[in-house]
């Protein structure tokens, strides 16, 4: 939102590898927090937003949030300095974290409502995450993370490094949208296509 100078990112899933290891799962390369933060820092630097909204599932769970190493805290604090920072609660990370910024279940800004999971029958202007939408052009290449919108809502792709995607054709996702909906594929250039 250029005029509000608001940057919104969704589903960072910081600390995902730590959570998997803690639960006795695979020991994934522990670099995804570094990678996700570096991407976020690049966006913040490029856009200089007045407000940053993290749209939920910012941390893979509360344990991951609590176990954030000092370096990560400092980098988050550096990004938060001089701007409004809002953590929206997600299903992975309900409740507040001790990392600065405001904690909200949702946030209304200039006619838009930011929340983690899209709600049925909401008023127009809803912005959410959660589903990690991805989409592919029928003939050109592999699927890419995608923004999906219609006249009522916008769903953001996941911003975190270790995040899978859900195909836009999946009923749980597709049924949230009207017949005429648009997917915007991320990549070297954003590509807008109508959803089937």
């Amino acid at each position: 939102m250029p005029e509000a100078r608001l940057l919104c990112v969704s589903d960072l899933h910081l600390g995902k590898s730590e959570r998997m290891a803690r639960r006795g799962g695979a020991l994934l390369p522990p670099y995804e927090t570094e990678e996700t933060l570096a991407r976020l820092e690049a966006e913040v630097e490029a856009l200089a937003p007045r407000c940053v909204v993290c749209l939920g599932d910012s941390f893979d769970d509360l344990g991951a949030a609590l176990a954030m190493p000092e370096g990560v805290r400092l980098r988050l604090q550096a990004m938060q300095a001089g701007r409004r920072w809002v953590w929206i609660e997600g299903n992975h990370d309900p409740g507040p974290v001790e990392l600065g910024g405001a904690h909200r279940s949702d946030l209304a800004v200039q006619g838009l409502v930011f929340r983690h999971i899209a709600t049925q029958g909401c008023a127009p202007g809803e912005v959410s995450g959660h589903y990690h939408p991805k989409h592919r052009l029928p003939r050109s290449g592999t699927s890419r993370p995608a923004f999906v919108y219609d006249e009522t809502r916008l769903i953001l792709p996941a911003f975190g490094a270790y995040t899978g995607g859900l195909r836009c054709e999946t009923p749980a996702l597709r049924n949230l949208f009207a017949a005429r909906a648009i997917a915007v594929l991320t990549g070297p250039r954003a590509l807008a296509v109508p959803l089937a």
């Binding site: 590898s17 290891a21 020991l27 994934l28 390369p29 522990p30």
Partner: peptide, 11 residues
């Protein structure tokens, strides 16, 4: 995990 970053000493 054998990573250069010794992340999983606890886990």
């Amino acid at each position: 995990g054998g990573y250069a970053l010794r992340a999983y000493d606890r886990w």
